[in-house]
């Protein structure tokens, strides 16, 4: 293990230090750790290259000159390897470290740790301990968050299983446009290919993995695209007249367009778009709320109450 690490670090040092491309032969001859037959050294080198590339290290391969029967050469360019030292202020390094710490014990913990490690070699961060670091949002971040960011950034289509309102999982194919987090939930939006329309998906309703296609730059995000995070169907706004018991129903009062104080009950006018949502909210308040109008709302509420009495009798 450490012999191999040693060889890999030596390879990185040699490829970084060289001003010209090193051929395989030069590498085998000069870098410590390459031993055995040419064939086994070749295999060793192939694996080493893959491993370094896996760490995000760019190994440049010289172009083959058709006029010469040259061997291919390798090097690592410092500008592709090194972080821009003058890129960040001490404060900015502190912000980035805090941003990485936010992931502690959450989805991107591993990745963030590695970022922290690199940043810790850049400069000593400024002291920003007055900033709160408790970040509950990330605890709910989906485990596929990295893949999600990747597919949006590189325009890769995704496929996943999503549960519908009756918990049947259905395969969806989506071109993801954006992602966001609201009130503890993570969502993404994009074009649902089967439905030919933009839909929003809640990450915790996905069953299993997000399957990211290998195709890149496969679609365009419409110019000026803005995610609708209101979750409202653009339905017509109606007004309900409700009697709400004094001192009760603050959820209803918060959204009221008019409140007329009364004796036992206050009269409240409330705008609403979805009758179903409003009925649920009114039912929550049980006998503290009485619907005056509209009549249809009142009738649905009464039948819901009857249903509850029956089913629980």
């Amino acid at each position: 293990m450490s012999r191999k690490s040693e060889r890999l670090v030596n390879l990185v040092i040699a490829l970084l230090a060289t001003k010209r491309y090193l051929t395989k032969l030069e590498i085998f001859r000069t870098i410590e750790g390459y031993e055995g037959s040419t064939e086994s050294m070749e295999r060793m080198f192939e694996r080493d290259k893959d491993e370094l590339r896996g760490l995000g290290i760019e190994i440049e391969v010289s172009a083959l000159d058709p006029l010469f029967d040259d061997e291919v050469g390798y090097r690592i360019r410092s500008e592709n390897f090194v972080m821009d030292r003058n890129g960040f202020t001490a404060n900015e390094i502190a912000y980035m470290s805090l941003a990485a710490q936010v992931w502690k014990n959450a989805t991107l913990d591993d990745v963030a740790q590695k970022a922290m490690r690199k940043l810790s070699g850049l400069a000593k961060p400024a002291d920003i301990s007055e900033m709160p670091a408790f970040a509950p949002t990330v605890l709910n971040a989906p485990f596929f968050l990295s893949e999600l960011v990747e597919c949006i950034s590189q325009r890769k289509p995704v496929e996943f299983k999503y549960v519908d309102s009756e918990m049947n999982s259905v395969v969806r194919n989506v071109h993801v446009y954006s992602y966001f987090s609201l009130k503890g939930f993570w969502y993404f939006s994009g074009l649902d290919l089967a439905r030919e329309d933009v839909r929003t998906f809640r990450c915790d309703r996905i069953v299993g993995d997000l399957i990211v296609s290998k195709k890149t730059q496969f679609y365009d995000i419409p110019e000026g695209y803005v995610t609708d995070v209101s979750f409202n169907d653009l339905g017509e706004i109606h007004y309900a007249q409700l009697q709400v018991r004094h001192g009760r129903g603050s959820q209803l009062r918060n959204n009221a367009s008019k409140i007329e104080p009364g004796e036992e009950f206050d009269l409240i006018e409330l705008p609403f778009a979805s009758a179903d949502d409003l009925i649920s909210l009114i039912l929550w308040h049980l006998d503290d709320v009485l619907v005056i109008s509209p009549e249809s709302l009142k009738q649905s509420l009464i039948s819901s109450l009857r249903n509850l009495v029956e089913s629980h009798g």
């Binding site: 090194v82 972080m83 990295s146 990747e150």
Partner: peptide, 18 residues
């Protein structure tokens, strides 16, 4: 080797969201 390595895009991603 005395300069820190570049952040990978996954690492930048974690920092951006953070």
């Amino acid at each position: 080797l005395s300069n820190p390595r570049k952040l990978t895009s996954a690492e930048v991603g974690a920092i951006i969201i953070g």
